[in-house]
Amino acid sequence: MAKKMVFIDTSLCTGCKACSVACKAWNDLPAEKTRRISSYQTQADFTPTTYTYVRFKEEYYDNKMHFNMLKLQCFHCDDPACMKACSSDAIYKTESGYTLVDRDKCIGCGYCVANCPWGVPKIDEATNKMYKCNGCIDRVENGMKPACAQVCQTGAIQFGDRDELMPKAQARVAELQLTNPKAHLYGDKLMGGTTYVYLLQDRPDAYGLPLNPTSPISLTLWKDIVHPLGGIAIGASAAAITVGVIANLLRGNYANRAKNIAESHDEGGM
């Protein structure tokens, strides 16, 4: 299946939050008790039952407050840190570009949680399983838009084949740059290229996004160096003791030991 892409054009977003409601409806997720955390935001973070929400960052431009609105969900990285960190091979990539979790394999260790640069995966403590946006894989692989894109009234969430949608996104950036030089794409080159790509109208941190999200160095050290070296150390130790037993046998040390002890008994010790 062709590689898919979701293009989130923040210049068209009105912050209606219909995407987060549609996500709950399609994925059959329960509503949660929310509280107001800023003047217009009620959802602080992802939860095991909230795969997407809108962040309203209040930024001041020319002394006027402006909502930098950002619909957040899993970015579906091409080279996901969560997948590398997973202890149980539970996270996998689809050909269409989605990062999915097999909850039969997931044990809830939380290694993905700590290593995702955007803090997307969440563990349900009751079931010990990880939950996050699945990109509405059941819809997109059956010729439908993801629920959030389907419901979006302003066209801020567009869905299509990556080959077709990426040039459109780039054209839109070029169009906006005529009046706003800060306009740029976010995600197209990050973490191997993300399936969800944003058009931002200001620096990423003005939206509460990390400037340069990467797979942690500690993750590379852990999986590519510590694990193989640790295995080698254990193997070397096991090999050394095998050689040690054989060497002692060949040198006759086991037989000598029995003799020595018998002698020392005869002598009454020292």
Partner: peptide
């Protein structure tokens, strides 16, 4: 937390070899 993982694994594997 990210750094705790390689440290934990390294200590465990090294002590197992020991």
């Amino acid at each position: 937390v990210q750094w705790a993982y390689p440290i934990h694994a390294a200590c465990a594997l090294f002590m197992a070899a020991l």
